[in-house]
Amino acid sequence: MDGPEPPGDPLGVLHDDRPEPERVAALRRLADLAAGAGPGALNRYAAGLLAAGRREEAEQVWAQLVAGRPDMVVARFNLATCLVAGGDVEACARVLRACLEGAPPGSREWQLAERRLDDLAEAGDDAERQNRMLRLRVAALRERVALGLAEPGDFKRLARALYGQMHVADSGVTGRDMLEAARLAYAAEPEDPEALEALVLGLLVAGTERELSEALRKLEKVAPHSRALGLARTMRTDPEFEEAARARRDTMREVMRRAVAGDRAAEDELRAESQKFAGNFEYRVALLFAAYRRGDHAETRRLADALAAEPAADHHVHFHIAQFYWFLGEHERSRHHFALAHQTAATEGDREDAREALRTVGAGTPEELGLE
């Protein structure tokens, strides 16, 4: 992306098929070099993030770099490459058009941006063909499963295909879909490391912490150098990853706040994220608030019912859907979930919150429900 790298360079390590500890060390080295350094080092760090499979973080770094240095053409082109790798063709085209408009007509940068835009148009056609093939593959594999004709390998292929579709805009495929296929793959071949890797990936996007920890322990025994294991370790221990995760949490909190306040674009964004990460109950509870605030009681009930059916529903879920069920007139279901909120509470403070909410909405007294 920014010229050839000398042997032994950390960015070169990330582009090679090297053991995971070396890749982690190389990325950390790039982060250290970028700290307090100029835009060139930051550009290389973003390239390292992309090579390490952390595309969203790379996109954030390049976007910040472009905002601070709009004259840095290589950063703009790298951002465009990163965006198209994530499937955001429109955003990539916007960046390239900005390059085209900001460069002198006929200059090297102008010509490169024009060529990239032409390539993007062709790539868009190719990507759409690939997406169609992927959809057909998913449909065929699902049909084999439904008819009872699937072989063990079909479940792994289905999980991989759904994982690919999950990152395609408007595919309708969610993290939960991928996780369900991964569960089938693992159930069919519990001794197969690839099936266990698929399960770990599914749990990373849509599972619970308890299930994920158990699957990671198993994967560490049978495939200690697994890329999925390395990804999970990075998510849990890398300070740069944690910083990016914290920034994402802050961004999503703002999206949730806007959605609840009535911003329909924010609600649409939140809905898309909750479909990708169905195990994130905070997103789904915020959607409940948004739907109820705009008076869509049918959608509120649908969302509450979906949360109520979650085997892993926790205190946070039961506490909120109990109140929504009461406001929707589902009084017995409301009391049932107030009792579950009390039962699943981790602290006495949480239990008192459940008792207080029960009194506040008028659903009865803690004594009547045996919550004292």
Rank of each mutant, 00 (worst) to 15 (best):
L79P: 02
R29Q: 14
A215V: 08
L229A: 03
A223I: 05
A313M: 13
Y186K: 03
E269V: 02
V66L: 09
G349Q: 13
L79M: 07
L11Q: 01
E189I: 07
G40T: 06
G8A: 04
A63P: 01
P21R: 10
R160K: 14
L83E: 04
D238A: 10
A103T: 06
R227C: 06
A58L: 00
V285H: 01
R210K: 14
V317C: 00
R294S: 07
P311K: 04
E22R: 14
D268W: 10
G68I: 06
D125I: 10
K276V: 14
L11E: 02
L201W: 11
E356T: 15
E214V: 04
R210T: 15
M178N: 01
L340I: 05
A26G: 08
L201A: 01
G124M: 08
L49N: 04
E101T: 13
V61T: 13
Y45R: 05
G202I: 01
D238E: 12
A188N: 02
D170G: 13
L231P: 01
D9T: 00
T344W: 04
R18T: 12
G279C: 00
R129I: 12
L184S: 08
A339R: 13
E109S: 05
A345E: 02
Y325V: 02
Q64R: 15
V205W: 09
V74N: 00
V73F: 08
A139W: 11
Q64G: 14
E267K: 01
F155I: 06
L33I: 03
D170E: 15
H297W: 10
A346H: 12
A146T: 12
D71H: 13
A150L: 02
R301W: 07
A37R: 14
G370M: 07
E122S: 13
A146H: 12
Q165S: 12
R116C: 13
L203N: 01
E368Y: 09
G3V: 10
Q343K: 15
V317T: 15
R176F: 04
D118S: 14
F155L: 09
A223G: 03
R129F: 11
V95D: 00
R115G: 11
L219I: 05
G349L: 07
V361A: 02
F338C: 13
T208N: 07
P366R: 06
E180N: 09
E352D: 15
G87K: 00
F155G: 00
G36I: 03
G349F: 08
R142E: 15
H337M: 08
A91T: 11
A187E: 15
A103V: 03
A93M: 05
